[in-house]
Simulated assay, not measured.
Amino acid sequence: MLSEEQKRLGVISASLGNHALALSYHGNRLSIPVTVIMPVVAPIMKIQSCKQQGAEVIVKGDDMKEAKAYATEIAKERGLTYINGYDHPHIIAGQGTLGLEIVEQIKDIDAIIVPVGGGGLIAGVALAVKSLYPSIKIIGVESDRCPSFSEALKAGKPVDIAIKSTLADGLAVPKVGYNAFATAAPLIDKMVIVKEEWIAIAILRLVELEKCVVEGAGASALAAILAGQLDELSGKRVVIPLCGGNIDTTILGRCLERGLAVDGRLLKFCVTVSDRPGGIAELCKLVCKIGVSIKDIVHERAWIASDVFSVQVTVVCETMDRDHANQLRKALTENYSVVTFGDMMYPWPKSLKN
Protein backbone atom coordinates (compact mmCIF):
# COMPACT_ATOMS: atom_id res chain seq x y z
CA MET A 1 0.00 0.00 0.00
CA LEU A 2 3.07 2.30 0.08
CA SER A 3 4.06 4.69 -2.69
CA GLU A 4 7.52 4.36 -4.24
CA GLU A 5 8.68 7.43 -2.31
CA GLN A 6 7.39 5.99 1.00
CA LYS A 7 9.18 2.71 0.26
CA ARG A 8 12.42 4.57 -0.44
CA LEU A 9 12.29 6.61 2.79
CA GLY A 10 11.15 3.68 4.93
CA VAL A 11 8.67 2.92 7.68
CA ILE A 12 8.66 3.19 11.45
CA SER A 13 6.57 1.80 14.30
CA ALA A 14 6.49 1.43 18.06
CA SER A 15 6.02 -2.13 19.17
CA LEU A 16 6.48 -4.50 22.10
CA GLY A 17 7.91 -7.03 19.68
CA ASN A 18 5.63 -9.03 17.39
CA HIS A 19 4.57 -6.20 15.08
CA ALA A 20 8.19 -5.01 15.03
CA LEU A 21 9.31 -8.50 13.99
CA ALA A 22 6.75 -8.62 11.18
CA LEU A 23 7.80 -5.21 9.85
CA SER A 24 11.49 -6.07 10.10
CA TYR A 25 11.01 -9.39 8.29
CA HIS A 26 8.96 -8.02 5.39
CA GLY A 27 10.99 -4.81 5.18
CA ASN A 28 14.10 -6.93 4.74
CA ARG A 29 12.46 -9.02 1.99
CA LEU A 30 11.11 -5.95 0.16
CA SER A 31 14.25 -3.79 0.65
CA ILE A 32 12.27 -1.18 2.60
CA PRO A 33 14.20 0.48 5.49
CA VAL A 34 12.53 -0.28 8.84
CA THR A 35 12.95 1.52 12.16
CA VAL A 36 11.27 0.14 15.27
CA ILE A 37 11.00 1.82 18.65
CA MET A 38 10.68 -0.71 21.47
CA PRO A 39 10.10 0.10 25.16
CA VAL A 40 12.55 -1.15 27.76
CA VAL A 41 10.04 -3.84 28.82
CA ALA A 42 10.21 -5.52 25.40
CA PRO A 43 11.74 -9.02 25.55
CA ILE A 44 15.44 -9.12 24.64
CA MET A 45 14.85 -11.95 22.17
CA LYS A 46 12.42 -9.84 20.16
CA ILE A 47 14.82 -6.89 20.11
CA GLN A 48 17.65 -9.10 18.88
CA SER A 49 15.47 -10.78 16.25
CA CYS A 50 14.53 -7.40 14.76
CA LYS A 51 18.19 -6.45 14.53
CA GLN A 52 18.98 -9.73 12.79
CA GLN A 53 16.37 -8.85 10.15
CA GLY A 54 18.24 -5.63 9.41
CA ALA A 55 15.96 -3.16 11.18
CA GLU A 56 17.19 -0.13 13.07
CA VAL A 57 16.09 -0.83 16.64
CA ILE A 58 15.84 1.98 19.21
CA VAL A 59 14.98 1.00 22.77
CA LYS A 60 13.21 4.01 24.23
CA GLY A 61 10.42 4.58 26.77
CA ASP A 62 9.13 2.77 29.82
CA ASP A 63 6.00 1.53 28.04
CA MET A 64 4.19 1.56 24.70
CA LYS A 65 2.80 5.07 25.22
CA GLU A 66 6.27 6.60 25.56
CA ALA A 67 7.71 4.46 22.76
CA LYS A 68 4.91 5.51 20.42
CA ALA A 69 5.36 9.20 21.22
CA TYR A 70 9.07 8.95 20.42
CA ALA A 71 8.38 7.00 17.21
CA THR A 72 5.98 9.73 16.06
CA GLU A 73 8.70 12.35 16.58
CA ILE A 74 11.25 10.35 14.58
CA ALA A 75 8.69 9.77 11.80
CA LYS A 76 8.18 13.54 11.39
CA GLU A 77 11.90 14.28 11.50
CA ARG A 78 12.87 11.69 8.87
CA GLY A 79 9.71 11.67 6.76
CA LEU A 80 9.02 8.02 7.58
CA THR A 81 5.62 6.34 7.31
CA TYR A 82 4.31 5.35 10.75
CA ILE A 83 2.57 1.96 10.73
CA ASN A 84 0.39 1.35 13.76
CA GLY A 85 0.49 -2.30 14.76
CA TYR A 86 -3.08 -2.49 16.07
CA ASP A 87 -5.02 0.53 14.77
CA HIS A 88 -4.15 1.06 11.13
CA PRO A 89 -7.13 0.03 8.96
CA HIS A 90 -4.91 -2.00 6.59
CA ILE A 91 -3.29 -3.82 9.50
CA ILE A 92 -6.68 -4.58 11.06
CA ALA A 93 -7.86 -5.93 7.69
CA GLY A 94 -4.75 -8.10 7.46
CA GLN A 95 -5.36 -9.46 10.94
CA GLY A 96 -8.93 -10.18 9.91
CA THR A 97 -7.65 -12.79 7.44
CA LEU A 98 -6.99 -14.96 10.51
CA GLY A 99 -10.76 -15.01 11.02
CA LEU A 100 -11.27 -16.03 7.39
CA GLU A 101 -8.78 -18.89 7.73
CA ILE A 102 -10.53 -20.12 10.87
CA VAL A 103 -14.00 -20.31 9.31
CA GLU A 104 -12.59 -21.86 6.12
CA GLN A 105 -10.82 -24.64 8.02
CA ILE A 106 -13.29 -25.37 10.84
CA LYS A 107 -17.01 -25.97 10.57
CA ASP A 108 -19.82 -25.44 13.08
CA ILE A 109 -17.87 -23.08 15.35
CA ASP A 110 -19.67 -21.87 18.47
CA ALA A 111 -17.09 -19.38 19.75
CA ILE A 112 -13.67 -17.89 19.04
CA ILE A 113 -11.62 -16.63 21.99
CA VAL A 114 -9.10 -13.92 21.08
CA PRO A 115 -6.36 -12.33 23.23
CA VAL A 116 -6.71 -8.53 23.34
CA GLY A 117 -3.98 -5.90 23.63
CA GLY A 118 -4.36 -2.90 21.35
CA GLY A 119 -7.52 -4.43 19.89
CA GLY A 120 -6.47 -4.83 16.27
CA LEU A 121 -6.55 -8.62 16.15
CA ILE A 122 -9.98 -9.02 17.72
CA ALA A 123 -11.33 -6.17 15.59
CA GLY A 124 -10.23 -7.82 12.35
CA VAL A 125 -11.25 -11.32 13.41
CA ALA A 126 -14.65 -10.18 14.76
CA LEU A 127 -15.49 -8.21 11.61
CA ALA A 128 -14.50 -11.02 9.26
CA VAL A 129 -16.22 -13.79 11.23
CA LYS A 130 -19.39 -11.93 12.19
CA SER A 131 -19.87 -10.77 8.58
CA LEU A 132 -20.00 -14.41 7.47
CA TYR A 133 -21.38 -16.15 10.55
CA PRO A 134 -23.17 -13.74 12.92
CA SER A 135 -24.03 -16.56 15.35
CA ILE A 136 -20.39 -17.28 16.25
CA LYS A 137 -19.55 -15.71 19.60
CA ILE A 138 -16.42 -13.55 19.76
CA ILE A 139 -14.85 -13.42 23.23
CA GLY A 140 -11.90 -11.23 24.18
CA VAL A 141 -9.37 -12.00 26.92
CA GLU A 142 -7.05 -9.58 28.73
CA SER A 143 -4.52 -9.91 31.53
CA ASP A 144 -5.53 -8.27 34.82
CA ARG A 145 -2.28 -6.31 34.54
CA CYS A 146 -3.38 -4.48 31.38
CA PRO A 147 -7.20 -4.48 30.90
CA SER A 148 -7.21 -1.51 28.51
CA PHE A 149 -10.08 -2.76 26.30
CA SER A 150 -12.35 -3.54 29.24
CA GLU A 151 -11.74 -0.05 30.61
CA ALA A 152 -12.47 1.42 27.18
CA LEU A 153 -15.80 -0.43 27.10
CA LYS A 154 -16.70 1.05 30.49
CA ALA A 155 -15.80 4.56 29.35
CA GLY A 156 -17.33 4.16 25.89
CA LYS A 157 -14.04 5.21 24.27
CA PRO A 158 -10.30 4.39 24.43
CA VAL A 159 -8.75 5.64 27.65
CA ASP A 160 -5.23 5.61 29.09
CA ILE A 161 -4.68 3.14 31.92
CA ALA A 162 -1.73 2.30 34.14
CA ILE A 163 -0.31 -1.09 33.23
CA LYS A 164 1.91 -3.37 35.26
CA SER A 165 4.59 -5.83 34.20
CA THR A 166 2.94 -8.96 32.84
CA LEU A 167 3.69 -12.40 31.43
CA ALA A 168 1.53 -11.32 28.49
CA ASP A 169 3.92 -8.57 27.34
CA GLY A 170 2.35 -8.59 23.88
CA LEU A 171 -0.92 -7.34 25.41
CA ALA A 172 0.63 -4.55 27.48
CA VAL A 173 -0.91 -1.63 25.57
CA PRO A 174 -2.04 1.26 27.83
CA LYS A 175 -4.62 2.58 25.35
CA VAL A 176 -6.48 0.61 22.69
CA GLY A 177 -6.68 1.91 19.15
CA TYR A 178 -9.60 4.13 18.14
CA ASN A 179 -10.28 2.31 14.87
CA ALA A 180 -9.89 -1.06 16.60
CA PHE A 181 -12.27 -0.07 19.39
CA ALA A 182 -14.90 1.36 17.04
CA THR A 183 -14.76 -1.81 14.94
CA ALA A 184 -14.63 -4.42 17.70
CA ALA A 185 -16.81 -2.99 20.48
CA PRO A 186 -20.20 -3.66 18.78
CA LEU A 187 -19.13 -7.18 17.74
CA ILE A 188 -17.61 -8.61 20.93
CA ASP A 189 -19.97 -10.83 22.91
CA LYS A 190 -17.92 -10.95 26.10
CA MET A 191 -14.68 -9.68 27.63
CA VAL A 192 -12.78 -11.72 30.24
CA ILE A 193 -9.92 -10.59 32.48
CA VAL A 194 -7.57 -13.36 33.65
CA LYS A 195 -5.04 -13.46 36.46
CA GLU A 196 -1.35 -13.88 35.70
CA GLU A 197 -1.22 -17.24 37.48
CA TRP A 198 -3.62 -18.80 34.99
CA ILE A 199 -1.55 -17.49 32.08
CA ALA A 200 1.47 -19.28 33.58
CA ILE A 201 -0.54 -22.50 33.87
CA ALA A 202 -1.75 -22.13 30.27
CA ILE A 203 1.86 -21.81 29.05
CA LEU A 204 2.77 -24.91 31.07
CA ARG A 205 -0.20 -26.93 29.72
CA LEU A 206 0.63 -26.02 26.11
CA VAL A 207 4.25 -27.11 26.54
CA GLU A 208 3.35 -30.36 28.32
CA LEU A 209 0.26 -31.44 26.42
CA GLU A 210 0.57 -29.83 22.99
CA LYS A 211 4.40 -29.64 22.80
CA CYS A 212 3.84 -26.04 21.78
CA VAL A 213 5.85 -23.03 23.01
CA VAL A 214 3.51 -20.03 23.28
CA GLU A 215 4.14 -16.62 24.80
CA GLY A 216 1.91 -15.24 27.54
CA ALA A 217 -0.23 -13.15 25.21
CA GLY A 218 -0.94 -16.12 22.94
CA ALA A 219 -1.79 -18.38 25.89
CA SER A 220 -4.20 -15.99 27.62
CA ALA A 221 -7.29 -17.31 25.81
CA LEU A 222 -6.61 -20.83 27.08
CA ALA A 223 -5.97 -19.32 30.52
CA ALA A 224 -9.53 -17.98 30.63
CA ILE A 225 -10.89 -21.50 30.03
CA LEU A 226 -8.58 -23.10 32.61
CA ALA A 227 -9.63 -20.47 35.15
CA GLY A 228 -13.26 -21.55 34.77
CA GLN A 229 -14.35 -18.14 33.48
CA LEU A 230 -15.99 -19.54 30.34
CA ASP A 231 -17.86 -22.56 31.68
CA GLU A 232 -20.83 -21.67 29.47
CA LEU A 233 -18.75 -22.98 26.54
CA SER A 234 -18.50 -26.48 28.01
CA GLY A 235 -19.31 -29.01 25.28
CA LYS A 236 -19.14 -26.36 22.57
CA ARG A 237 -16.85 -26.13 19.54
CA VAL A 238 -14.35 -23.43 20.49
CA VAL A 239 -11.38 -21.99 18.60
CA ILE A 240 -8.36 -20.48 20.38
CA PRO A 241 -5.70 -18.84 18.20
CA LEU A 242 -2.24 -19.31 19.75
CA CYS A 243 -1.19 -15.91 18.44
CA GLY A 244 2.43 -15.54 19.48
CA GLY A 245 5.38 -17.82 20.18
CA ASN A 246 8.12 -15.22 20.67
CA ILE A 247 8.96 -15.81 24.31
CA ASP A 248 12.39 -15.29 25.90
CA THR A 249 13.89 -18.57 27.09
CA THR A 250 14.55 -17.04 30.53
CA ILE A 251 10.93 -15.88 30.76
CA LEU A 252 9.76 -19.31 29.59
CA GLY A 253 11.68 -20.93 32.45
CA ARG A 254 10.09 -18.56 34.96
CA CYS A 255 6.64 -19.15 33.50
CA LEU A 256 7.03 -22.92 33.72
CA GLU A 257 8.17 -22.73 37.35
CA ARG A 258 5.35 -20.30 38.19
CA GLY A 259 2.88 -22.63 36.51
CA LEU A 260 4.20 -25.64 38.43
CA ALA A 261 3.91 -23.70 41.70
CA VAL A 262 0.34 -22.59 41.01
CA ASP A 263 -0.46 -26.13 39.90
CA GLY A 264 0.74 -27.50 43.25
CA ARG A 265 3.57 -29.48 41.65
CA LEU A 266 6.32 -27.20 42.93
CA LEU A 267 6.01 -26.68 46.67
CA LYS A 268 8.00 -24.49 49.04
CA PHE A 269 7.83 -24.82 52.82
CA CYS A 270 9.72 -23.68 55.93
CA VAL A 271 9.91 -25.95 58.95
CA THR A 272 11.70 -25.68 62.29
CA VAL A 273 13.49 -28.89 63.26
CA SER A 274 15.94 -29.99 65.94
CA ASP A 275 19.53 -28.92 65.32
CA ARG A 276 20.88 -32.01 67.00
CA PRO A 277 22.41 -34.73 64.81
CA GLY A 278 19.76 -36.33 62.58
CA GLY A 279 17.21 -33.48 62.73
CA ILE A 280 17.43 -32.50 59.08
CA ALA A 281 17.97 -36.14 58.07
CA GLU A 282 14.61 -37.08 59.64
CA LEU A 283 12.92 -34.34 57.62
CA CYS A 284 14.50 -35.61 54.42
CA LYS A 285 13.41 -39.19 55.25
CA LEU A 286 9.82 -38.00 55.73
CA VAL A 287 9.84 -36.21 52.37
CA CYS A 288 11.47 -39.23 50.71
CA LYS A 289 8.93 -41.64 52.20
CA ILE A 290 6.09 -39.76 50.53
CA GLY A 291 7.92 -39.91 47.21
CA VAL A 292 8.55 -36.19 46.90
CA SER A 293 11.74 -34.95 45.20
CA ILE A 294 13.75 -32.17 46.89
CA LYS A 295 14.97 -29.54 44.42
CA ASP A 296 16.57 -27.14 46.89
CA ILE A 297 17.19 -27.06 50.65
CA VAL A 298 18.61 -24.29 52.87
CA HIS A 299 18.95 -24.23 56.66
CA GLU A 300 19.29 -21.16 58.88
CA ARG A 301 20.26 -20.86 62.56
CA ALA A 302 20.96 -17.18 63.30
CA TRP A 303 17.40 -15.84 62.91
CA ILE A 304 15.56 -18.52 64.88
CA ALA A 305 13.57 -16.98 67.72
CA SER A 306 12.66 -20.23 69.51
CA ASP A 307 15.85 -21.80 70.93
CA VAL A 308 19.50 -22.38 70.08
CA PHE A 309 18.89 -26.06 69.52
CA SER A 310 16.59 -25.49 66.53
CA VAL A 311 17.22 -24.81 62.88
CA GLN A 312 14.85 -23.45 60.24
CA VAL A 313 14.90 -25.42 57.02
CA THR A 314 13.49 -24.03 53.75
CA VAL A 315 12.75 -26.67 51.13
CA VAL A 316 11.63 -26.43 47.52
CA CYS A 317 10.37 -29.76 46.23
CA GLU A 318 8.56 -31.36 43.31
CA THR A 319 5.35 -33.35 43.65
CA MET A 320 3.33 -35.35 41.13
CA ASP A 321 0.10 -33.39 41.52
CA ARG A 322 -2.06 -31.51 44.00
CA ASP A 323 -3.08 -34.62 45.92
CA HIS A 324 0.56 -35.54 46.31
CA ALA A 325 1.34 -32.01 47.54
CA ASN A 326 -1.52 -32.17 50.05
CA GLN A 327 -0.23 -35.53 51.29
CA LEU A 328 3.12 -33.87 52.05
CA ARG A 329 1.41 -30.93 53.74
CA LYS A 330 -0.53 -33.29 56.00
CA ALA A 331 2.59 -35.25 56.98
CA LEU A 332 4.55 -32.10 57.76
CA THR A 333 1.84 -30.51 59.92
CA GLU A 334 1.39 -33.78 61.81
CA ASN A 335 5.10 -34.17 62.55
CA TYR A 336 6.24 -30.57 63.09
CA SER A 337 4.68 -27.84 65.20
CA VAL A 338 6.23 -24.92 63.28
CA VAL A 339 5.73 -25.21 59.52
CA THR A 340 4.69 -22.62 56.91
CA PHE A 341 4.04 -22.99 53.21
CA GLY A 342 4.90 -20.61 50.38
CA ASP A 343 1.45 -21.18 48.97
CA MET A 344 0.70 -20.30 45.34
CA MET A 345 -1.82 -23.06 44.64
CA TYR A 346 -5.09 -21.74 43.23
CA PRO A 347 -8.35 -23.62 43.74
CA TRP A 348 -9.33 -25.39 40.54
CA PRO A 349 -12.77 -24.63 39.09
CA LYS A 350 -15.22 -27.46 39.81
CA SER A 351 -15.58 -28.24 36.12
CA LEU A 352 -11.84 -28.92 35.80
CA LYS A 353 -11.08 -30.86 38.96
CA ASN A 354 -10.94 -34.10 37.03
Rank of each mutant, 00 (worst) to 15 (best):
A20P: 02
L21F: 05
L23G: 02
S24H: 08
R29K: 14
L30C: 06
L30V: 02
V36C: 07
V41Y: 10
A42M: 03
A42S: 15
M45P: 00
V57I: 12
A67F: 09
Y70P: 00
T72K: 13
T72S: 11
T72F: 08
T72M: 10
E73W: 00
G85V: 12
D108Q: 12
A111M: 08
I113P: 01
I113G: 01
G118A: 08
G119T: 07
S135L: 02
I136H: 05
I138E: 03
P147Y: 02
L153C: 13
T166I: 03
L167F: 01
L171D: 03
A172Y: 01
N179V: 11
A180G: 06
A185Q: 14
D189N: 14
K190I: 00
A202D: 07
R205F: 03
E208S: 11
K211T: 09
K211H: 14
C212T: 14
G216R: 07
A219M: 02
A224N: 04
A227S: 15
Q229P: 00
L230K: 03
L230R: 04
D231F: 00
E232A: 11
L233I: 05
K236S: 13
V239H: 07
C255P: 05
L260P: 00
V262Y: 06
L266T: 03
L266Q: 13
L267C: 09
C270R: 14
S274G: 12
G279C: 11
C284N: 12
K295I: 10
K295R: 13
I297D: 06
H299S: 15
H299Q: 15
W303C: 01
S306E: 14
V308C: 09
L328A: 08
L328V: 09
Y336I: 08
N354K: 12
